[in-house]
């Protein structure tokens, strides 16, 4: 029987790695909730977004396998993030300079 054994072995992420990421995600969630209770003004928004970005990168890299997957998926993601950033930055200039 012909099998695709020659195909590249699929990367298997261990249970422990996922558990660690989950602990980190829950930890970051409690940090963001705690920080939101303190009055930091506009800085609070920046901190909240920074923590959300760190959580996203954990989910994308580990849960969604981007770190261990083929490079083409990093390109896909890069293009989408770049598109979003361009749209946000251009809109920000428009709104601020009105």
């Amino acid at each position: 029987m012909h099998n695709n054994d020659s195909k590249k072995e699929h990367h298997v992420t261990g249970y422990g790695t996922y558990l660690l990421v989950w602990v980190a995600l829950i930890g970051l969630t409690s940090i963001t909730v705690t920080v939101a209770g303190i009055d930091f003004g506009m800085v609070a928004l920046a901190i909240a977004l920074l923590i959300a970005a760190i959580k996203s990168s954990l989910v994308i890299n580990i849960f969604m396998h981007i770190k261990s997957d083929e490079p083409i998926f990093k390109v896909f993601l890069g293009v989408s993030l770049f598109t979003l950033i361009v749209i946000f930055v251009l809109t920000a200039f428009d709104v601020i300079n009105r």
């Binding site: 969630t29 963001t32 909730v33 939101a36 209770g37 009055d39 609070a44 909240a48 977004l49 923590i51 959300a52 959580k55 996203s56 989910v59 994308i60 849960f63």
Partner: peptide, 15 residues
């Protein structure tokens, strides 16, 4: 899940 990660602080955590 990713979308919720952003929805949560932007709606629930404004003080």
């Amino acid at each position: 899940d990713l979308i919720w990660i952003f929805l949560f602080p932007l709606f629930y955590l404004i003080h």
